[in-house]
Write a protein that binds this DNA or RNA. Structure first.
Lengths: 220, 220
DNA sequence: TGCACTCGGTGCACCGTTGCACTCGGTGCA
DNA sequence: TGCACCGAGTGCAACGGTGCACCGAGTGCA
């Protein structure tokens, strides 16, 4: 088959559709049950596939959940990639401060409140938080961080990889802290008032990172 | 698997759904194109299956069309079976006149106008009639007639099978003649006026059959 | 009149799903 | 404390669908 034909064949389309349906079903069930209060049987029925098919697509339930969270968190990476397109010339010589500015711009530009709200509802339902589920989320954040760092190194090849890794790690875990404060202030609402709080916290976080933790050099 | 489980499994459900989708797609394309103005490729695309799958379910296009027509004509057999349920006692000794009355009742009770209208539009589109397609319809009528006769013999085992076969054959071909006259009078419309014409023609047809073709015995 | 094309139909290998029996870990209860 | 049950996860075979190359009949055109 000539590879110039851009559309996948029916087999590939079916496979992809089933994979998406499983992830979407898991996302729905997480939200509806407030966490891991469903079985693989429930998930399969909701996705309209067999139990075996779930395991054909994913090695385990934690892989399904990882895909769910990955979808949810995908907006930040996409926004960063939009902020710093690959084909922009003359940026290879810039320092980590430039990388920081691009990431900061992406963080400001991305509306993370829906994702945060969803994750909060899914992870903190009427039952106690599941450490296992938190572990899945952490893994996704780490994986996402790795991809984000890779995207940065691709765009800024002369910046010290350690600086990039430190930056990404700091930002991701910083966002988790921002989330906790945001949650306490807004009860994870997904509305305009909640967005104002989120933006304020993000600004304080980014300002602190920019300024660093050394002694304040004072007005000059 | 215990056969007490009444619902089919997912495989069987998928298979049946694809078979139904193919038949439904063929019915739609016959109507939309006014006959055989589509390809197997069109049919497969409309049914959302592959070309090969069509031939997995049906030996040929004529078999698909036979299924379409069979669905369309199925109402009469179902109505007859409702008119003359199997478990009704004491009817085995009746004659062919009783069988005729049951069939006549079914013919009166079944609204055949939608089916007739559909078949007319499908078989007589903007192009010339297809003798091949007419042949498929005839085959379906014959098959349907065989099943109708079998249902009658099951209910009236003491009636001469020849009498039953003659009756069924006469009624089916009579309905075709009724259709032609109805078509000329109504242009195959599917509306109340068209139903009135159909019923009138059916009554004349049934009266003639009941009275027979001997000399009129006159008023007595 | 020969050739190229279309389309119905076919054989075969492969893919993805499914059914089902099974294992193992966790849990609850008598 | 042992047993029964539940549910995640697994291996394997079968099923249904799919891709693709092919054949043959029919058709249109140079």
């Amino acid at each position: 088959m000539p590879s110039s034909h851009p559309t996948t064949d029916r087999r590939a389309a079916l496979k992809e559709r089933h994979r998406r349906d499983i992830v979407a079903a898991a996302a729905a069930l997480l939200e509806e049950t407030g966490g891991l209060n469903f079985t693989i049987e429930d998930l399969a029925a909701r996705a309209d596939v067999s139990r075996r098919t779930v395991f054909n697509h994913f090695a385990s339930l934690s892989d399904v959940l990882a895909a769910v969270f990955d979808d949810v968190m995908g907006g930040l990476l996409a926004c960063y990639q939009a902020q710093a397109p690959l084909d922009a010339g003359g940026r290879a010589w810039a320092g980590v401060d430039a990388v920081f500015d691009e990431l900061a711009a992406a963080l400001r530009a991305t509306d993370l409140v829906p994702s945060m709200s969803y994750l909060t509802r899914s992870l903190i339902g009427e039952k106690e938080r599941s450490p296992w589920l938190d572990g899945v989320l952490l893994r996704v954040l780490e994986d996402g961080g790795l991809r984000l760092a890779a995207a940065m190194r691709e765009r800024r090849p002369r910046v010290d990889p350690l600086e990039i890794d430190l930056l990404v790690n700091t930002v991701i875990h910083g966002v988790l802290v921002v989330h906790r404060h945001w949650y306490e202030a807004t009860d994870a609402a997904d509305d305009d008032a909640s967005r104002v709080v989120w933006s304020g916290l993000v600004e304080r976080f980014l300002s602190r990172l920019r300024a660093g933790y050394g002694p304040d050099p004072g007005p000059s």
